[in-house]
């Protein structure tokens, strides 16, 4: 379980109980002005690594990392997986993440209101931008997508449109479905 402000990952024993700090590192901390560090978290299929996003780093870039799943991970077990440099519009701010069945990592970019899909080597395969089709109502802007779930029957993902960093508009609070031709892990 991630803690975005403390920059750490907790582990909670099977069956519950108090969270215990499992890994803490300065790279998991956010930017002092924006605070959001380690955020979305998912295990790979074999549980060899746990992947997580760091939303806003000191230089306003965001990143995904992976960490070896061992009892007492150290800094040597931490690898930078993909970087999202900030643009003139601001941080891209990776938030929730989720694996496809083929091991690609889907990343919600809350800052730029985009969806990024990473190959298994961390290189970006695809970046989805722009509004979503909203039937007879026209289109619905993507607004700070936060988290992702797979609808395997349709080979789509559902993404929460968090809409917290844009002017208040209750119509933006929605789920957006994106066809990605894959099931989830």
């Amino acid at each position: 379980m991630t803690d975005s402000f403390q920059g750490l990952i907790y582990r909670i024993p099977t069956g519950g109980g108090a969270p215990q700090v499992w890994f803490q590192h300065p790279n998991l901390l956010g930017n002092p002005q924006m605070l959001f560090g380690v955020n979305g978290i998912r295990f790979d299929e074999k549980n060899k690594h746990v992947y997580f996003s760091v939303t806003v780093r000191n230089d306003f870039s965001g990143a995904t990392y992976r960490l070896a799943v061992v009892n007492n991970p150290s800094a040597a077990d931490l690898e930078e997986f993909a970087v999202y440099p900030a643009t003139q519009q601001g941080p891209l701010a990776p938030d929730g993440i989720a694996f496809t069945q083929t091991g690609r990592l889907v990343v919600a970019l809350a800052g730029s209101s985009q969806i990024s899909i990473l190959r298994q080597n961390g290189k970006e395969a695809l970046r989805l931008s722009g509004p979503a089709d909203n039937g007879k109502q026209g289109t619905l802007p993507r607004a700070n997508p936060a988290n992702i779930a797979f609808n395997d029957d349709e080979r789509t993902i559902l993404v929460t449109n968090h809409a917290s960093l844009v002017p208040f508009d209750p119509n933006l609070f929605a789920l957006i479905e994106v066809f990605i031709k894959e099931k989830g892990q």
Partner: peptide, 25 residues
């Protein structure tokens, strides 16, 4: 299931969670 400790003065924000293959969060 798991009660959080009081946050430090600098704040805390538990955010996302995932189960491993052994059933640990």
């Amino acid at each position: 299931y798991s009660a959080f400790p009081p946050p430090p003065p600098t704040g805390a924000l538990p955010n996302d969670l995932a189960f491993d293959n052994d059933g640990r969060l």
